[in-house]
């Protein structure tokens, strides 16, 4: 199944992006079917280990959405997320995992359309990249 192969694990912060996604849903905006939403309290809660684990468990991409800079419910969680994800992407590239498979972006509670746009863009990127090559531990 194409969708299964291209699963995009999507972390949404509870206070902005999850609401944004909800708006998109209510407005019946067209959203990709291969996003798998996980609600977290804040984008700053996302440990690089979660992203790595998602890839190991078969995700083809990981999308992390939080409140716009300045609007984080916990004030500074999303600033930390910027630094974490930036370093993580650099490290993943060394493992042969394309940087574009991880995207950190901002969607506020009122931005249903923005959510749909970012999610569709991500789906397109992942479609182009294809599934993450299986990790083969070759002798």
């Amino acid at each position: 199944m194409k969708d299964e192969k291209l699963a995009i694990v999507t972390f949404l912060c509870n206070w902005c992006s999850y609401e944004g996604a909800d708006k998109a849903g209510n407005a019946r905006l067209n959203c990709p079917s291969n996003i798998r939403i996980i609600r977290v309290m804040c984008s700053g809660r996302i440990e690089p280990q979660f992203v790595i684990q998602a890839f190991i468990d078969g995700a083809s991409g990981v999308l992390i959405l939080g409140c716009h800079p300045g609007d984080c419910h916990y004030k500074k969680g999303n600033y930390k997320a910027i630094r974490r994800i930036s370093l993580l992407k650099k490290m993943l590239r060394q493992f042969g995992i394309e940087q574009d498979r991880v995207r950190l972006d901002w969607v506020s509670a009122s931005e249903g359309e923005r959510f749909a746009k970012v999610a569709n863009e991500m789906a397109e990127t992942i479609e182009q990249l294809g599934p993450l090559p299986e990790l083969k531990i070759l002798n």
């Binding site: 440990e47 992203v51 790595i52 930390k80 910027i82 630094r83 930036s86």
Partner: peptide, 26 residues
């Protein structure tokens, strides 16, 4: 610690560029 690299990224991201983080561009 489940993964050294993942955890070290978290640790470093908490202290690198902490001061004035709100004025830092990507």
């Amino acid at each position: 610690v489940k993964d050294v690299g993942g955890k070290m990224i978290s640790a470093l991201a908490s202290i690198v560029g902490l001061e004035g983080e709100e004025n830092m561009s990507e």
